[in-house]
Write a protein that binds this DNA or RNA. Structure first.
Lengths: 179, 179, 179, 179
DNA sequence: CATGAATGAGCCTTCATTCAT
DNA sequence: AATGAATGAAGGCTCATTCAT
């Protein structure tokens, strides 16, 4: 038990370091030795916990995409509350710049990593459809348009956060516009 | 004059080749020698026309972002027609996969290239605001929310193009939802 | 006593595992962790029993060269029977592929390990000379030529074992040819 | 023409440097940067001419095995003269230590490189058989035994060159013994 | 004794960029 | 302008060896 915990804690430390470095340099410009330094461990150890840099990239990218928050909201909420939950969590997750950078980078590489592509597909096809059904009662084209507008709008807000509009206000206006 | 034309034609050839290669490998995983082969121009010559790979990346990324189409529509159209124009051109530009890949990749690297970041800033702040004024008569928070919803929705549609919904239908529904 | 036995048994287990791994990968391409896995002993422990990988290589290489069998035959036999004994034991030792691989690999590295080089020198100079004296009564150049022909022929047979010729037949013909 | 020549000369230079370095360190312990230094070129250039270190190893190993000299003799000579030709050329080829080291190393890795294994197979099976037919008029088991004795003896002589016996004498005695 | 986590030197290879022709 | 040979700085990864437990 303690063994597994230690292992898990070490992996976590590496992933955290990797997130900081990746968010600054991008996945492919970030050399592994910087990640090692940032996590305070040796370069070799990274390859003890992750079989390759790609595996580490994958782990970080998965955490950076919004699928997890969508799933959580889907479990907890129904109807219009669901949309609010998603919006709130989305804005919260990407509030700090590190996550924001990682989000863009991760979207950028999703085509090159089958596992990521699948995650994006599930998010955009299945999860969004489910949200539509739970929030609007159907997944008609128009409801799906609303879903994309919601999601895309949040993405835009996050990518280029406007100065004078608080998250609260933005979310309220957004939900109002989407009806 | 002929000199300049020849120069321009060569540069264009390279950029075209670069777009094909970049869209397949991503900017940083695409080696210059592949671009050379793809455009039928020697590797050395690429550095005659572009001072560095970064300059080439910049040129390609600029063409891949949607600012140009926004500007064009802003010049040509007014009122609600403006939104339709943007939607139509947006969907057209990113209809083929190459452009779509480049769009994501370009967004992904925009933070690392000051010129790109500026372009994104102008697009999301100034151009979008101008569109809001011309289409809705004001740039109130709510109008801006609509702008982001429009833009983000188009992005989502393009990133993960749904099977059963034509561009026409999608655009019509989208504009209807946004009022 | 039991202590020493246990120690010896552990060392033996490691050497056996090492032989299997070395024969597959060659001495320098075989990572220690594979030897550990193959012998069912932890990587760290290997360095408890052997001060370095080189020491393990040395031990395996020594066992893989034919000096031991030469010495044994020299103790037991005289005259022409000695040659037959050598031939028989040689063919027997290198009957299985593992030993065959190790023989070649060991010859290949003998130059780089002083202890091995000495072993090869003793084998080719002293032991062979002794065999010549015991088998032919002298170590004249011609007798030594016969020795090398015997030895080299066995090596060739073993390296590239012909399909249609049994060990028995080969040995008989060989001894006949060498007179 | 001049282009190809330059290319060929550069490749040759690398191969020569590689042979020197490989003969000293063995194929796997010889780092590429030493080969570069020894050939007086940059490390990167080696990979311009050879797609990988393995390819370079292969080229060197092929030159270090005796197949070429066997083929040449087979073309030029008949009968007993053939054996003499082989013996002479063999002793000549492996007169200097570099070639001798490379011979052992190359034999040692032949199992790991399919192309080399094929070369060894052809040498030991087909070429040796052809020599037997041309020298003794048949490829009976006994003739093949003689072939292996010839070849193996030469190998032994070369691996552990005796001090007091000149090549000439050795060869004369050897041929006499083999009848 | 025993384990497996930790280290860091070093290796092969890639690739942007320069240069001689 | 044009070519492709040449350079060298990194980069990802392996692996022998050590160490804390």
């Amino acid at each position: 038990m303690s063994r597994r915990d230690a292992r898990e804690r070490a992996r976590e430390r590496i992933v955290r370091g990797a997130m900081r470095v990746f968010s600054r340099y991008g996945f492919f410009r970030a050399p592994v030795h910087l990640i090692a330094r940032e996590s305070g461990i040796s370069k070799g150890l990274i390859f003890w916990y992750f079989s390759s840099k790609d595996e580490l990239i994958l782990e970080v990218a998965r955490r950076s995409l919004p699928a997890d928050l969508l799933r959580k909201c889907l479990e907890e909420r129904q109807g219009r509350e669901l949309l609010e939950c998603i919006g709130r969590r989305y804005l919260e997750k990407y509030r700090d710049e590190e996550m924001r950078s990682l989000l863009i980078y991760s979207m950028g590489i999703s085509q090159a990593y089958p596992e990521l592509e699948e995650e994006v597909r599930v998010t955009c096809d299945e999860l969004l459809r489910e949200v539509a059904r739970k929030a609007y009662g159907d997944d008609s084209p128009k409801s799906m348009v609303r879903m994309r507008a919601l999601f895309g709008s949040l993405l835009c807000y996050v990518l280029r956060r406007p100065r004078n509009v608080s998250e609260e206000e933005y979310l309220r206006d957004l939900l109002e516009v989407l009806g």
